[in-house]
Structure formats: structure tokens, C-alpha cells
Simulated assay, not measured.
Amino acid sequence: MGLFSYLSDWKASLYEKKIAEAQSLGHCPDCNGKGFQIPIVNEYSFPESYDCPSCLGSGSFSDWSSSNSR
């Protein structure tokens, strides 16, 4: 179980680093401050952009943190 614990801790530290970097830039960590997300495209779908559900399309970290604090 040591390997699983190590990988879990490593993944958590990467996520914390991503959140800290996004906070310093003032960007939403899910959409990188763009305000929209483009879903994965395959041969059966058409690429459309959708507002980021985490920051409600604003791209700001403050909106992301307020929507994730619930």
C-alpha cells in the first residue's frame, strides 16, 4: 500500500500546486482563465465551446473559489 499512498500524495501535491499557480495569476484552474471549455472531439461530435461550469464563464479565480466553497 506504500506505492498507492505515494501516488495519491503526489497527485494531491500536483493539484495543490495547480491551484496555487492559478490563484497567483487570478485565473480559474479548470479553464485556465479562458471562461470556456472545449470538449473532446471525435468523429461523431462537433466541436463547440461551453462556458466553464466552475467559474460560470468568467475565467476568474475568485468566481471559481466562491463556486467551489459550497
Rank of each mutant, 00 (worst) to 15 (best):
S69P: 00
S62I: 13
W64V: 02
K18G: 01
S54E: 11
K17E: 15
S62Q: 09
I38R: 12
Y50F: 15
L7S: 01
A22Y: 05
M1F: 07
D30W: 04
L3C: 10
Y15D: 15
S5K: 14
S49D: 05
G59C: 02
S62D: 14
L7M: 10
S58Q: 10
L14T: 02
V41M: 01
D63W: 02
P39Y: 10
Y50A: 00
C55V: 04
E16C: 01
W64R: 01
L56Q: 12
S8M: 11
L14V: 06
I19S: 00
A22W: 03
M1V: 09
I40Y: 08
S49V: 05
S54R: 05
C28A: 11
N32M: 11
S58L: 10
H27C: 07
G57S: 03
S5E: 12
A22N: 06
S65R: 08
C55Q: 00
S67C: 06
I40G: 04
F4D: 02
S8Q: 14
W64T: 01
C31Y: 03
S69H: 07
P47M: 09
S45N: 15
G57F: 09
C31D: 06
E21R: 13
R70W: 13
P47A: 10
C52A: 05
L3K: 10
C31T: 00
C55R: 02
L25S: 11
E16K: 13
P53H: 09
K17Y: 09
Q23D: 11
L3T: 12
F61K: 09
N32G: 01
C31M: 03
S66L: 13
L3H: 13
